[in-house]
C-alpha cells in the first residue's frame, strides 16, 4: 500500500507548527467575530430604522460585501493602502479589518432579520400589560431576538473560521500555510506528504467548526418556538 504521507507530521516539530498555525487562524477569527458581533448589533438596530439615507447606505454596504470576493478586499487593504495612503498595516491587522468589514455587514443583516421577525403583537401585548418601551425590549423583544440570532451567528462564525484560510495570500502563516511549508520541505523524502498533511489540516478545521455548528443545531432545536 502507498504511504499516506502521515509520517512527516511526526518529524521534528511539524505537528506543533501546524497547531501554531491553527491558533493563528482561530485568533484572527475570534477577534474578528467578537468585534463583528458587537458592531453588528448596532448596525442591525440601525438597519431597522426608518431613515431612508441610513437604509440606502446599509444596502450599498451589504451589496459591496456580498459582491466583492474577500480575497480582493484583503489585497486592497493590505497592499493597496500601503501604496496609496502610506499606511503600514501588518498582515494580521489587515485580515481583521477585512473580516470585520464583512462580519458587521452579515451580522447586521442577521440582527435586522431577527428584529423584524418578532411579530408586532409581541410588542403590543407587552405594552397592553403596562410594560414601558424599555421593559418591553428588555424582557420580551431582546430575549426572543437573541434566541433567533445565536444559531444564525454561530453559522457565520464557522464561515469566518473557514475563510481565514485566505489570509495566507497576504503572507500570514496560518494552518494551511504551515501545511504547505511542511509539504515543500519534505517533497523529496516523502512525496505523498500532500495527502497526509492536508488531510490533517482538514481534520483540524473540522474539529474546530464541528462542535460550533453542533451547538448551533442544539440551540436551534431547544429554542424552537
Amino acid at each position: 500500500m502507498q504511504s499516506l504521507g502521515l509520517d512527516v507530521l511526526f518529524k521534528g516539530t511539524n505537528f506543533l507548527r501546524l497547531l501554531e498555525g491553527l491558533w493563528v487562524s482561530v485568533r484572527i477569527s475570534l477577534i474578528s467575530v467578537v468585534i463583528s458581533i458587537l458592531l453588528g448589533l448596532v448596525a442591525g438596530v440601525l438597519m431597522t430604522s426608518k431613515n431612508i439615507v441610513l437604509k440606502a447606505a446599509f444596502r450599498v454596504y451589504l451589496e459591496i460585501v456580498r459582491i466583492m470576493p474577500q480575497m480582493v478586499l484583503l489585497f486592497i487593504v493590505y497592499f493597496g493602502t500601503t501604496r496609496v495612503f502610506g499606511w503600514n498595516l501588518d498582515a494580521e491587522a489587515s485580515a481583521v479589518i477585512v473580516f470585520v468589514f464583512w462580519g458587521v455587514a452579515e451580522m447586521g443583516d442577521l440582527v435586522r432579520g431577527a428584529l423584524i421577525s418578532i411579530p408586532k403583537i409581541q410588542y403590543e401585548s407587552a405594552e397592553a400589560l403596562g410594560l414601558t418601551k424599555q421593559q418591553t425590549y428588555l424582557y420580551v423583544i431582546l430575549p426572543q431576538t437573541v434566541r433567533r440570532l445565536i444559531p444564525l451567528s454561530i453559522n457565520l462564525v464557522t464561515r469566518m473560521i473557514k475563510t481565514t484560510s485566505l489570509v495566507l495570500m497576504i503572507g500570514i502563516v496560518e494552518v494551511l500555510k504551515v501545511g504547505q511549508q511542511i509539504i515543500e520541505a519534505n517533497r523529496r523524502t516523502s512525496p505523498n506528504a500532500a495527502f497526509g498533511v492536508f488531510a490533517v489540516v482538514f481534520l483540524l478545521y473540522f474539529l474546530i467548526c464541528w462542535p460550533v455548528s453542533r451547538l448551533a443545531g442544539y440551540l436551534e432545536k431547544r429554542w424552537a418556538a
Binding site: 403583537i121 401585548s125 407587552a126 429554542w223
Partner: peptide
Amino acid sequence: IGMVFQSYDLFPH
C-alpha cells in the same frame, strides 16, 4: 385595562 387579542400572544420564550 386588561386586553386579550385574537391571535395567541403569549411570550414564546
